[in-house]
Design a binder for these strands. Structure first.
Length: 125
DNA sequence: GTTGTGACATTAT
DNA sequence: CATAATGCCACAA
């Protein structure tokens, strides 16, 4: 049995990044309509706690064909990560309000977002 | 191998 | 509430 520490991955196998991105994409796709989740919550739901930044990377590189509900992903405290006035900010706000979620001063008008992403991992929703 | 950066989070000040 | 410092994972130079 050969032991190649430097190149464990076989040719054609998915890279770590790809595997993580796929898990993250699935977690994002699982966000119920009308709810919002945090980057950290998605990372945890995907099985990678503390990988909130990776969620951002995954969303940025996500193929449009997946039609992911990226607008349901907000930062801790329900804040929209995009700068107010930016195109993506208005886009996300518009999509959220389209689902009945109110946005005030760059934040979703949800009492506790943590409770929401908490129901994502544990409860059936 | 080091440094800088990014759709982030947490903690300290 | 605003800033700064760390931690986190992955990528680009």
């Amino acid at each position: 049995m050969v032991v190649d520490r430097s190149r464990q991955r076989q040719a054609g196998q998915p890279t770590r990044r790809q595997a993580r991105c796929e898990a993250i994409w699935r977690a994002v796709a699982a966000i119920p309509r009308g709810s919002v989740a945090t980057y950290g919550g998605i990372a945890a739901s995907a099985g990678y706690p503390r990988a909130a930044r990776l969620v951002g990377y995954a969303l940025k590189t996500a193929p449009d064909a997946l039609k992911l509900p990226w607008h349901r992903v907000v930062a801790a405290g329900g804040r929209i990560v995009f700068a107010q006035g930016s195109r993506l900010h208005r886009e996300q706000r518009r999509r959220l309000e389209s689902e009945g979620i109110t946005v005030r001063r760059g934040r979703v008008a949800v009492a506790r977002v943590e409770d929401l992403d908490a129901l994502l991992w544990g409860s059936d929703g």
